[in-house]
Design a protein around this nucleic acid. Structure first.
Lengths: 202, 202
DNA sequence: TCTGCCATGTAACAAGTTACATGATTGA
DNA sequence: TCAATCATGTAACTTGTTACATGGCAGA
């Protein structure tokens, strides 16, 4: 699938492996990621398969780079793939996997984990919003654009933003519920209040 | 990481590989998945590492199964892992990756993709809601529970539900925006109305 | 001179997917 | 008898991660 992510980026503009890596950290990160070792290998495989062609571009004051461009065959492969129905993505979220067994650690630790994780998502949200603002600065009202590339870009970006907001909201909600829960536990399982009353009543 | 998902399930109750597979299709799917070939291999590796122990359990009217249980070492490994800070999950969503390049296919096809994908998420949401209702039928008001295992379970389930709702909402929003967009494109790029007026004015 | 960025790669390993393979039991 | 479910595995392959490795250029 990385193949197609690369084709999508290259069809907009020929890029070197290094530049592709940077794009992956920029716009496309919302829904795909890759590290450079994977990208370089994939590019070679794709060139062998005739989906892309490379050529060396000398630069001044910088090392020569190897710029890849999509071939007709590559574009066709991309379009064919776009027409296929994607399956549901299988969720894999380490935080939620941990959360599932947080009964095994102290309540305070669990709360700290949630708070910390919320922070991470807040940072990511900020990053996405910054990207959106940059686009707005350059193109004005994004939903009024007549550029289809930009249009779809913006839809994807919105999804990413909505997703982060949802996650952050959930963290807050979970923290509140956790707070209620530990409060209740304290008042019923320690030697005071209700329990003691209960015993006295026997 | 699959290792820890397995430890989480086994610490609740010893299970065979086959039963684990079923759990992965049931509750834990919200944030992790695995197929049986992976599970069986992982269990063997974990047994070699002393994290679990197995024993054969003959059953009547059914094939003998090999039930795994967590060892003290396994439980310790699980708790250590729980204390660590998870990184942000890296999003990988094939649908969004495609969406990013939907300018390359016909607007109708793109809309059909969005509609189809929304349906998939609706089905998944239904599934989650059914699970929640089953839990409610068994335990009453889930947020009032005093069982920490159930409590964390429910928090995770809520995240999964919120996530599906967000996605479905986004699909609807995207479809509406896409509709506006293609309308606008039609009125400005075909040979009629404004464009023709423009030419006549020359 | 030293840090940081540009630029490209390889190697070893871990994780995940798909297909192949077997065999018992149950109920229609 | 035939399909479905229970039950467990292996093999081949694809993907993804981490670490290792190199070297130029720019600016402090």
């Amino acid at each position: 699938m990385l193949k197609f992510a690369i084709l999508e980026l290259l069809h907009r503009k020929p890029l070197s492996g290094y530049e592709l890596k940077r794009r992956f950290q920029g716009s496309i990160v919302f829904f795909w990621r890759a590290n450079h070792s994977q990208i370089y290998l994939e590019l070679k495989r794709m060139e062998k398969a005739g989906l892309v062609v490379s050529n060396q571009v000398p630069q001044d004051r910088r090392p020569t780079k190897k710029v890849y461009a999509v071939t007709a065959k590559g574009l066709e492969a991309l379009v064919q793939w776009l027409r296929g129905r994607p399956k549901l993505q299988s969720v894999k979220d380490e935080m939620l996997l941990k959360c599932f067994a947080f009964n095994l650690i102290a309540p305070d630790e669990a709360a700290a984990q949630l708070t910390h994780h919320r922070k991470l998502h807040e940072v990511r949200l900020e990053h996405y919003i910054k990207i959106k603002q940059q686009l707005e600065a350059r193109h004005g009202d994004l939903l009024e654009t007549s550029d289809p590339i930009l249009f779809w870009n913006v839809l994807c970006l919105r999804q990413a933003i909505a997703s982060e907001r949802m996650y952050i909201g959930w963290c807050g909600w979970a923290l509140a519920r956790h707070h209620d829960f530990t409060d209740k536990q304290r008042s019923t399982s320690f030697d005071g209040g209700e329990q003691l009353d209960g015993r006295l009543a026997n």
